[in-house]
Design a protein around this nucleic acid. Structure first.
Lengths: 337, 337
DNA sequence: TTGAAAGCGCTAACAT
DNA sequence: ATGTTAGCGCTTTCAA
C-alpha cells in the first residue's frame, strides 16, 4: 500500500510537505505543490482518512439524522446538504431512524460520537434526554424544520404559511373549511403539524368563523390517511366546501376520494395542500410551496460558519414560503368569481 | 477526553481487554465484558472511530453512490440499505452525483479510497474508466439495477417485466400501443430504459404488431416529460389506445395531459406505468411493481457476504416484479371485457 | 482468557 | 517554505 512516504520520496520532499500540499495549505510554493500532486496522482495516492483523522482530531464528516430517507421532502433536503458538503470536501454520514427502536438505539449509543465533526438533524424535535446526548457530542448541530433553544435552525414559518393559505380560501368565499391534519400529539414528537393547525384555526378565528369539529379529520401525513380523512369529512354534517391538507401527500389521498366519489374539483370541493411536492404541479394542486433543497444547503452553510469559528451564536434562518395557486381551488359554487 | 486507558483503569483490566470487550470479541468472559461495558457506559466512552480504524485498517463504513437522492426510487433503496447497515454497525457514507461535473470529480479523485470498506452503486452504468477506478479501490462493490461483469448485482428483469406489461395490454385487445420512453442513448449511460423499450418491442413483435414510429415519444423520466410525450402521442396519426410509460412519474405526466384534454382513462386511453411508485395507488395507475427497499437490503447482504469472506464469486440477484392492475387500464372501447 | 508493547500512517509543533 | 520528530489512541501480535 502506497504511503505518504512513497509520495515524499517520489517528489523529493518531506512527508510533512506532502501532507501540506495535498491538503491545500497555503504554506507551499506552487511549484512544490504541483510536484507533489503529480507524484500523488502517479502513485494513485490519497490521504488516508483514518490516519489523517487520528492525527488531526477531525473526521471531515457531517452526520445527518433523518427520520425517513424515502419521503420526497427528506430526500430533497439531503440533496441540498450533500451538494454543499461535497463542494467543501466533507463527507455525509447518514443516520436513518425509521422507527422508535432505531431512534432509541441511535441516541443511546451515540454512535456518531467522534465520528462526525458536526450534525444536521432533520425535522425531528428531540426529547430532553436526546438533546442532552446531542449536546454532549460537543460539535455544532443545526436543526432543519424545528427550532431548538441553544442551536441554530433553518425552517419555515408553518403557522403563518398555513394561516395565509386558509385566509386565501376564506377570501375565495368559503365558509366551511375542512382540515386534514395529524394526530395530536403527533408521532415522533413533530411540532410542525400542530403549528400548521394553529395557523388554520387562527385564520378562521380572524374571519369570525367557528370551526366545527366535523371539519377536522386525521390523515397521518400519508396518502392513504388523506384518502380516509376526506371520506370522513364528506360524510359529516354540513361538509366543507374547501379543505386544507397539512401536506401534499394527504391532499393526493383526498383527491383520490373526491375522484372516486365523483366530486369535481374545485367546483364541489376546493383543495389546498402544503409543501409543493414534486407532483403537486402534475396534479394541479394549489399548495404552500417551501424551498427544500435550499433548506438543506443553507443548513450546511450555517454549520460551516460554526465549524470554522465564523459564528458562535446560534442562528435561526427562516426561509420564505409562497402560496402557489393551481386548478384545485376556486370560489364555492354560487359565488361570483 | 476519556480514552480507552481510563476505561481500562476503571474496570481493572488492560486496554487490550477493553478493546476486545467493546468490539464483542468472543475471547472475553461474560463477567469481564459486563464490567468493561458498565465502565464504558459510566464514563460515556465509545471506541473512537479514527483510532480504531487506523489500527485495524477497517473503516466500518460503506459508500453509496447515487445519481439522485430526492427521487423516490433512490431514497427508498437507500432506506433499505441504511437499515441493514445500521443493524450491522456499519456507517453509510453518501456520494451523490447529481451532475456530470460531480460525477467526474468523484471518480477522478476517488475520495472514497481508504474511506469505505465496500461500495454500493445505484443504477449507474459506469464507463470503462470509472469501472477501472472502482476496481482499483480493492473493496467489494455491489451494483443495484445494473449488471456489471466481475461484480455482484441486485436488479430486476427489465426486459421481461416490460414485455409482460405490454402483453397484458395486447391481451386486453389493444392493437395501437404507445410508448413513453427516454432518449436513446439515455443520459448518464442508463441501460434500464433501453431494456424496457426492448421488452415493449418484443411483446409487439410476438403479437405480430408492427410498431409505428408515431407511437413512441420521449419523456425523459420526468413528469413534465411524460406530459409532453402524451401530447405528442395524441397528436399523431392513428394515436394509440393504450400507452406504456417506462416509469410511473412519466405516467403521472401523461395522466395530466389526458385530464386536460378530457380523455377518460381507461375508456379513451389505457395507461400502464413502471415502478409502483408510492403514489401509483393513489392515482389508480396500473404498473409494474418492483421491490425497492428489498433491493437495497439485499445489496447489503450480498456485500456483507463478500466483506466477510463468505462469498468470493460475484452473485447476480434478480428480484421479482409483478404487474399490479388498477383502474387506469382496460379493454379498448367496443371490445368485450 | 488476559496483559505488555509495538506499530497503524498520518499531522502538528518546532526548528531551520 | 520546508524538514524533523513526537505523538494521535487504538488493535494486534506475542507471551503468559
Amino acid at each position: 500500500m502506497v504511503s505518504i512516504r512513497d509520495v515524499a520520496r517520489y517528489a523529493n520532499v518531506s512527508t510533512a510537505t506532502v501532507s501540506r500540499a495535498l491538503r491545500g495549505l497555503s504554506s507551499v510554493t506552487a511549484e512544490t505543490r504541483a510536484r507533489v500532486e503529480s507524484a500523488a496522482a502517479e502513485l494513485g495516492y490519497v490521504l488516508p482518512f483514518n490516519a489523517s483523522s487520528l492525527a488531526s482530531g477531525l473526521t471531515n464528516s457531517v452526520g445527518v439524522v433523518a427520520p425517513f430517507t424515502s419521503r420526497w421532502f427528506f430526500g430533497t433536503v439531503i440533496t441540498g446538504i450533500e451538494r454543499v458538503l461535497r463542494d467543501e470536501g466533507l463527507d455525509l454520514v447518514l443516520y436513518g431512524i425509521g422507527d422508535a427502536e432505531s431512534r432509541t438505539r441511535l441516541f443511546e449509543q451515540m454512535s456518531m460520537r467522534r465520528r462526525v465533526d458536526a450534525m444536521i438533524v432533520l425535522c425531528l424535535p428531540l426529547t430532553k434526554r436526546e438533546l442532552a446526548a446531542v449536546r454532549s457530542l460537543g460539535v455544532p448541530v443545526v436543526f432543519v424544520g424545528t427550532r431548538v433553544a441553544g442551536f441554530s435552525s433553518v425552517r419555515i414559518e408553518d403557522f403563518t404559511a398555513s394561516a395565509h393559505a386558509v385566509d386565501y380560501l376564506i377570501r375565495l368565499g368559503h365558509e366551511r373549511i375542512g382540515l386534514i391534519c395529524d394526530d395530536d400529539p403527533a408521532p415522533f414528537g413533530f411540532t410542525t403539524p400542530r403549528q400548521r393547525k394553529q395557523g388554520y384555526l387562527s385564520a378562521l378565528h380572524a374571519a369570525g368563523i367557528t370551526p366545527l369539529p366535523q371539519w377536522q379529520a386525521v390523515g397521518g401525513f400519508t396518502v392513504a390517511g388523506g384518502e380516509a380523512a376526506m371520506n370522513t369529512l364528506l360524510d359529516g354534517d354540513s361538509p366543507p366546501t374547501a379543505v386544507f391538507a397539512l401536506s401534499d401527500e394527504m391532499a393526493y389521498g383526498a383527491l383520490r376520494t373526491l375522484r372516486r366519489r365523483r366530486r369535481t374539483v374545485p367546483e364541489d370541493v376546493s383543495l389546498v395542500g402544503f409543501d409543493n411536492h414534486e407532483l403537486a404541479a402534475a396534479l394541479d394542486l394549489t399548495t404552500v410551496a417551501q424551498p427544500v433543497v435550499e433548506q438543506g444547503s443553507e443548513a450546511v452553510r450555517v454549520l460551516l460558519d460554526e465549524l470554522r469559528g465564523r459564528s458562535t451564536t446560534p442562528r435561526d434562518v427562516v426561509v420564505p414560503t409562497e402560496l402557489v395557486v393551481r386548478a384545485s381551488s376556486g370560489s364555492p359554487v354560487g359565488m361570483p368569481n
